[in-house]
């Protein structure tokens, strides 16, 4: 299949705060192809989760939030739907069917008083109109598919009887119930232990190979990004600051923020000394800096041009965009970059 399954154009989100609107996401745009994994990376307050919730139409309605832009999802029959413009009923029909989402803490998304089999079956019945028996049968198949042993018995379990990893598998089973074309995973492994995290990542990769779904993977963990992503989009203070293929972005980051983020990931190398950190904190969205939002924390900042205006997203290579006015200068000064190559 050619062409993107999801295309987002100029997505902006603002939250009403008294009389004014506080911007949370500015002009986010990306495309997602079938079978592709796009990692959305950022720290708290970067706007990555708000972006995904806006796509799913899960933000509170206007006037509390203001969402503009377009999110074009290709339907089963090839027609294109703008998720941001459709009426609520139409969105509900697509949600869980063509586009699904899993969250960081599965416990808050599972209903504690229903058996997990019924919860998975419910979604199938709503979208596929199967009867209870057929839906439960399908639920059993789904539970097996996400690697939960003893599926028939687990159908009858309540959410609290499962471990965190198992609950996340149940959430994935529910999300996959109708073979969605797009799965949005919002920090799905953050609450899990590392050993379970690696299991879930392997599961998602395997399922993606089978179904060819497009995966939007939201995380703050660059180790996980390196593991799973084809392309990366780094967000800071509501804007995309760097995007491109996972190898160029992570081995030769052009935005100082991306470079700092990669350097501050602790490694198993026993190098000792101080850990690399990025000084300062993210800016208050109510009072953003006049120019580049990262400038106050950036080691390469110059008052001109960094503080003059918000830098545009510039091409720094094939499919590699960066929002930094000085990226070319910085790259020239730093080349050749031995840091990551040496470690590899």
């Amino acid at each position: 299949m050619a062409g993107p399954v999801l295309e987002v154009r100029g997505l902006s989100v603002g939250f009403a705060d008294g009389r004014r609107t506080v911007p949370a996401v500015h002009e986010v745009a990306f495309t997602l192809h079938p079978g592709e994994t796009l990692a959305l990376v950022g720290e708290s307050g970067s706007g990555k989760s708000v972006t995904s919730l806006a796509l799913m139409r899960l933000l509170p309605p206007a006037p509390r939030t203001r969402v503009t832009g377009a999110a074009l999802l290709r339907g089963r029959d090839g027609t294109v739907h703008d998720l941001l413009a459709l009426p609520d009923a139409a969105v509900r029909a697509l949600r869980g069917d063509r586009i699904a989402m899993i969250f960081q803490e599965p416990m808050t998304s599972l209903n504690p008083v229903h058996r997990i089999g019924d919860q998975i079956a419910e979604s199938v019945r709503f979208h596929r109109g199967l009867d209870r028996h057929a839906a439960l049968k399908r639920a059993e198949g789904l539970i097996e598919r996400v690697g939960i042993p003893d599926a028939a018995r687990r159908l009858r379990a309540y959410p609290h009887e499962l471990s965190g990893g198992m609950r996340q598998r149940v959430m994935i089973a529910m999300a996959l119930a109708c073979d969605p074309a797009v799965l949005i995973a919002d920090e799905p492994t953050t609450a899990l232990d590392v050993t379970v995290q690696s299991q879930i990542l392997a599961l998602l990769k395997g399922l993606q190979r089978e179904t060819g779904m497009g995966l939007v993977f939201i995380t703050h963990n660059l180790g996980v990004v390196a593991e799973i992503a084809d392309r990366v989009m780094v967000m800071y203070a509501g804007r995309i600051v760097e995007s491109g293929g996972v190898v160029p972005v992570m081995t030769a980051p052009r935005m100082p923020y991306t470079a700092g983020l990669i350097a501050s990931v602790p490694r198993l190398d026993l190098k000792g000394g101080e850990m690399v950190s990025i000084p300062g904190t993210v800016p208050d969205p109510r009072a953003p800096p006049p120019g580049c939002a990262f400038a106050p924390r950036c080691p390469h900042r110059r008052p001109t041009p960094c503080d003059e205006a918000v830098p545009p997203l510039e091409a720094a290579g094939a499919g590699h965009d960066v929002r930094c006015r000085r990226w070319a200068e910085i790259a020239a000064a730093a080349a050749p970059r031995p840091a990551l190559e040496a470690r590899a």
């Binding site: 899960l58 229903h114 419910e122 709503f126």
Partner: peptide
């Protein structure tokens, strides 16, 4: 219940009601 798996997490509520001072 159909929408249960899609209900936004509590984190969002926190996000929306964050008070600065």
């Amino acid at each position: 219940m159909t929408d249960a798996p899609l209900a936004p997490p509590r984190r969002l509520a926190a996000l929306l009601s964050r008070r600065p001072a």
